[in-house]
Design a protein around this nucleic acid. Structure first.
Lengths: 330, 330
DNA sequence: TAAATGTATCGAAACGATTCAATAACGTAA
DNA sequence: TTACGTTATTGAATCGTTTCGATACATTTA
């Protein structure tokens, strides 16, 4: 590989001069600048990014860490981050935390290969983030709440979302509302469930534990949960699936058993994934402001990188999207 | 930030000893190893990735360059790349070529911030790839064909796909088959169109230019193209949309005008995007082997990085997926 | 006991850029 | 002519690692 040394030699100038010329940083005569660029072109010179970063201690790049790079779920979030990064003239790379401690994500976090990062990956523990964060390496943690210097947390108000979903069903006249949960220990699930309970209580509806079924946040899980509900004696008149994927599985299960949605049973999901609008019936759900979340995260990160002050906790609210899968109880 | 120097000092050993201990590379006594790790932990030492990369000239990381990070379209491709990368113990980062010459992608390409790269982004020109590729920096170019050292091209057989789609319609008895094209200059579109023409010719069907409408590969474009077809006098009995997005737009246009698919008109797409199976009617289409493409690309890249020989051109074939949007002409 | 062998540790050079402080070159004012 | 200011150029130090070759010391072998 050709280095700046080679360029300098060919151009007949000092290495430092070549560097100044190439970066346009200091007064360099038109004449030598030309010579340097000519030499660089002739040698097909390209600077070594590492060497440059090492010296200048800045990469003008941030990383977005996701638990799964390939998830269509993230698409809008990424868009938000991307747009704001572009505006700020920063580079963006995405990497996955798949593989836990050996993952690309952890490598980027620990070895500071970027100027800062946005983390949306629950398989990375809080401790690790706390350890990695630093004055010169701010971290934005999405969908969790961490109390630590140089870390800003952004959460969607899952409790409010759970409440909204349940309230919608209640207002349609439903009194028997099942809740299909995600993994019971997850932050998201706990809060959504809390919102569900709050709405029930507020409307004086009893909570029945037999209507709380675990679905694991997967399509398959939702399918099985719905099957289980059906096989129990009295079917509720509405089901709140704690995410859309599970709701999709649920819709399939109901269809297979000849139970019509929304005629026989109302279904509501959570997330508003892209597919939600294309299912038959289309899915009523709680929209998470994903684009906004990404944009906000990036925005705050750039503020921190500029040394500005910010809050260290933000909460975004959700929105009820009414489609065809819920209707008034007759 | 604390450096290895600090660690060495605290542990009372030489810098080189600390490095050996931390990396487990050379014989180091249990005693000093312990001292070094203790010091590192106490100081919360984390190595500087740049410095390390600079010296060792390898990052154990590859980049996947996409024209749009957020596109759900890429999901399976990414999955393929990710799986193979994980098997090979390499790190993967994804970056976008949005922004052209100022994009993150170009920075990664030119400054060699990774060991090699897979490029699936048409807004990066061949010349740039040729310039960036190097013995120590192999590039896999997807969906285009480049003749150059250290670049391997992988293409989906678009011509065959176009042929397959058209043949399917012909075999269903259709004689009047429209083609809704993408941007006319794009590689993909040209080949798909070629396949369409070959199938027509092979079955002695005439090609009518009024049935070749431009749809720009977008949903909106497909919608407008379908509208245009409808407003022309004689409607064809089948339409081949050069991608699924346009087909989606087309379906909407037909529905709005009360033209039933597939009763009144058959529709076929190209790509087999995730939504294709959820539209009403679900979409008959040509599946591109995206996962396989990603996996193959990664596989070849790792072969090159190991210094092994490979072909420098690969072609993958497509598959007809029959769903509800096409039927026998009655 | 001296020589040979082996092991753990160390010092210094290197990677390829950036940047500070020093110098050279040159025109201008005194 | 000398002194000075300005501007373009340079040499050398530096960033934080890795790694080569040297060294010191302990152990085995002849």
């Amino acid at each position: 590989m050709t280095t700046i040394k080679d360029v300098a030699k060919l151009a007949g100038v000092a290495v430092s001069t070549a560097s100044y010329a190439l970066n346009g940083k200091q007064k360099i005569s038109e004449e030598t600048r030309r010579k340097v660029f000519e030499a660089a072109k002739k040698l097909n010179y390209q600077k070594n990014g590492f060497a440059s970063d090492l010296k200048s201690k800045s990469t003008k790049t941030i990383a977005l860490i996701l638990s799964d790079l390939s998830g269509p779920y993230y698409s809008q979030l990424i868009q938000g981050v991307q747009d704001v990064s572009y505006e700020n003239g920063y580079n963006l790379v995405a990497c996955s935390s798949f593989g836990g401690y050996n993952s690309t994500a952890v490598k980027f976090l620990m070895e500071k290969r970027v100027d800062g990062t946005i983390v949306f990956a629950h398989n990375i523990e809080n401790d690790l983030l706390v350890q990695a964060a630093h004055e010169s390496f701010p971290i934005i943690a999405l969908d969790r709440s961490i109390e630590s210097d140089h870390i800003v947390s952004i959460e969607v108000d899952n409790e409010q979302g759970g409440y909204l979903a349940t309230k919608h069903l209640v207002e349609l006249g439903h009194k028997h509302i099942a809740y299909v949960s995600g993994p019971v220990t997850t932050h998201d699930n706990i809060l959504r469930f809390k919102g569900y309970q709050r709405a029930l209580k507020e409307h004086n509806l009893p909570y029945k534990s037999k209507w709380n079924i675990s679905g694991n946040f997967t399509r398959e899980g939702g399918y099985n949960a719905a099957k289980l509900l059906i096989s129990q004696k009295d079917l509720p008149s509405a089901v709140f699936f704690a995410n859309d994927e599970m709701a999709l599985g649920g819709l399939r299960a109901f269809k297979e058993k000849g139970i019509e949605v929304p005629k026989d049973i109302s279904v509501i999901g959570f997330d508003d994934i892209q597919l939600a609008e294309y299912t038959r019936p289309s899915l009523t759900t709680i929209r998470q402001p994903k684009y906004e979340m990404g944009a906000l995260a990036a925005h705050i990160l750039y503020q921190l990188l500029k040394g500005e002050e910010t809050e260290n906790f933000y909460k975004l609210s959700t929105e009820l999207i009414i489609r065809e899968s819920t209707k008034i109880l007759t």
